[in-house]
Each structure stands twice: as C-alpha cells, then as structure tokens.
Design a protein around this nucleic acid. Sequence first.
DNA 1: GACCAGGCACATC
DNA 2: GATGTGCATGGT
Length: 228
Amino acid sequence: MNRKHTSPKCLPGIIRIYDKLYKFYGPQGWWPAKSRLEVIVGAILTQGTAWGNVEKAVHNLRKAGLLQSTVRISKTRPEELARLVRPAGYFNVKSRRIRNFIKFLADRYGLSLKKISRRETSVLRDELLQVNGIGPETCDSILLYAFERPVFVVDAYTKRVFSRHDFFRPDAGYEEVQKVFTENLPVDKKIYNEYHALIVRLGKEFCRKKPECGQCPLKEMKYLAKGL
DNA sequence: GACCAGGCACATC
DNA sequence: GATGTGCATGGT
C-alpha cells in the first residue's frame, strides 16, 4: 500500500442506510451460536451455503459433543468430521478447513481459544488469513462475532446492495469495500455486528432472483453515495 | 430440473 | 492481476 493520504470521504448515506435498516428490521441477534467455538466452526460451514443447512451440520456436531472443546475436534477422525458436517455441503473441503484451523490453534496456542483471544486484532487477522480455508470474510466474521473486535464484515450482499447504490463499482475488492464502511462509521463492534447482519437480512429478502423491490426498505434511497 | 446459498483455493491465461 | 472452475447439500 503506497497510496497518498486521502482525507476520509464523508458519506452520510452509509449511516442513513444503517438507521433505515435498523428501524425497519430491528436488532438481528447475531451470531446465532452458543459459544465462541461454535461461531468459528459456523463461519467456516456457512461459506457459500444457506444458513439452514449450516444449522443441521452444527446440530450434528453439538450432538456428537464436538463443540464442547477444541480438543474434542482435534481428536476426531477426518472422515467422521466430514460425515457430521455433510448437510452444510462441500463437506470434505469444510472438514479439512475446520481441521486446518484446529491445527493452527494447536500449533500456536495449545488449542486454547482463551490464549488466542488475547492477541491484538491486526496480528490475529494476519494469522487467521494464513490458515488455508479462511479467507477475508470468514476471518472477519470470526474477529467480529467470536472475538468481538470492531472489524467490518463484507459479503456478497454488501457488494451487491452498495454497488447498486453507487458507493463503489461492482468489481471493487474486499478491502476497498470494507474501507467505505470503516471510514464512514464510528469504530463500534455493536454497529458493525448489526450492520452486517442487517445487510444479510436485506439481501436474503430483496437481492434474490425476483426481488420484490416495492417493499424494499431502501427503495426510495437513491443517490445515497453522493451523501444526499 | 434449474437456480441459488452468510466463500475459498487453485489452475490457467 | 483477472477470470474460470471445483467443491455439494438442501430449499424454492
């Protein structure tokens, strides 16, 4: 990164959309999980997958006692883990990705989530991104929802919704999109938490094949990117 | 039966 | 650096 200093653009639209969505939907209660470990595993399982299928896989894991501790997962055979996460799709890939994370945690933190949770956010982010199978969205979801760090999560809906409203081009990169939000919102994990969840909620209801745009809470909000 | 879902890594150009 | 493809189940 060798770019000149640019003064942060003020885009009130980013805040206005948040207010609009929050008033429309209310708090979303994310992440829907019972423990830190469950958030991390869920974040991997939800990659490219509908949440309903993830819930089935999480249910299997919980029933098998694997979400009680990282040690339990580390002692589980790969085929067994894959069998349990099967309903979430890509089960061989995801089984391996969960094990990659557990191996990383074992190698560096003795399988202790408590120890890893003491690390500084930027260090943690760099480390997580080195784990094969943890990309930017999964990484930031873990940071925000499992470790409660003020990191904004960007997903496909975020790009779709906000590029349509002209905040950035549709082919904008992850960090570029993330920056639009972090530069225009207070650094607040609670707001980041709700905002991402609200965008997903909105996306599910209005960004699919035949969106009923007439009911969309953002339907009257044009030119927001210009700050109007 | 087609299309999509709270991505990511890897091959290829 | 950009683009294409494999990974897979379950709901609409």
